[in-house]
Design a protein around this nucleic acid. Structure first.
Lengths: 205, 205
DNA sequence: GTGTTATCTGAACAGCCGTTCATTTCAATC
DNA sequence: GATTGAAATGAACGGCTGTTCAGATAACAC
């Protein structure tokens, strides 16, 4: 993760003082600032100030600003896919859809900054980075589409257009990150329940 | 550099009474570029090049870059509210909801750039501009909320949480702009119909 | 102690940023 | 033809941009 070449000597990593802490802190600061102000509006010096180093030091951990953005987005989407792969499914398409709904809301509410970046900064990715990131996003989308298609085939759902339903449901669920606040009147569990109620009805189950 | 081959010619290539055309062209170019690359990533010189003038000339029409963004967003939201005010409603809450759904999709698909900006660049608004823009956005949101509340009161809808349903429906509908392409397999009418089908079911009607 | 090595500083680089303004251009009016 | 004035130019402004790099610093091994 630290961008160094092959780590041939496991003991060599203990030489510096802050190397193990600066890398993660850089990523955290960048994620927070990118989400808050947008990739293009954030300067390397702002990130460095947040980390507590000079701007030049950041380049011990990242190739460049663009690479930093791509890394953040890729890491987020890989986390997402891995977490969903580990998530227990319910029974049948209906159970799977409920699992997906509750998982999606929980996962996204836990990382609002990463979600924001992944959805808003696609246009700031260089073409060579965009392709890979977009493929990951598509893979996640397909997870839901497969559930809906299976439910449609099993006669559990009523969907005139499975593909459109996939996009509609994901947009609805992801929208939660734009308004949900921890201090609000609804708990995350309650929100997930309310969304599941709407999703279930929307797919005709 | 004006791009002309003859750089010894001191005379400007274009000039004269273009004032009535340059203003709108500036706004169109800015809208397209802001939507494509993001407000912070677009330079005044890029906009000027698109319009066909030098950067300095833009300031005959706008106070500054920030004012340009605020103007674009305010104009779009006022258009949105005015268009919805003129839109014929169907009968009762169900008819109103269908009218809103179809209107929202049609209106948003007709101006993808303006929509993109209005909902992605809120964070780039200076505080004094943000308040007014956010109020307009809220007013539109309330239009849907009122419909849902009326339908809930009339027993036509089944909504455990009207406020959340409002946000969920708007997110779902607005999401159409992220994937719809005119060259795709579905017409706008068909898409609106499919979304209406899901919305109707989601609200329990 | 010496030497090694990862880490960070601080200055520099070339270039772009939004914005201003004196000047130039030219259609419209007298 | 002369005058006017809106509209555009082109250069300039101070400041900020991402990135590089020689040199300082400090923790480790010996």
């Amino acid at each position: 993760m630290n961008g160094c070449s092959d780590n041939t000597d496991p003991m060599a990593r203990t030489s510096g003082s802050h190397s193990e802490i600066t890398g993660p802190r850089l990523r955290e600061a960048a994620q927070r600032l990118f989400a808050r102000h947008g990739y293009a509006a954030v300067t390397m010096r702002q990130i460095a100030a947040e980390v507590g180093v000079q701007a030049g030091a950041l380049y011990n951990y990242i190739p460049d600003k663009q690479g930093l953005l791509a890394d953040l987005m890729r890491a987020h989407l890989e986390d997402l896919l891995a977490a969903w792969a580990d998530e227990p499914r319910g029974e049948g398409p209906l159970g799977a859809l409920e699992a997906f709904t509750r998982f999606h809301i929980r996962f996204h509410l836990e990382r609002p900054d990463a979600v924001f970046i992944a959805y808003m900064e696609l246009r700031n990715l260089a073409p060579e980075n965009f392709a890979g990131i977009e493929a990951l996003r598509k893979r996640y989308e397909t997870e839901l589409e497969d559930i809906l298609r299976a439910g449609q085939a099993a006669g559990v759902f009523d969907l005139p257009d499975t593909k459109l339903a996939t996009l509609a449901v994901i947009a609805m669920l992801t929208g939660v990150t734009t308004w949900y606040r921890d201090a609000g009147r609804l708990s995350r569990e309650r929100v997930a329940g309310l969304y599941w109620d709407m999703v279930r009805k929307a797919v005709g189950a």
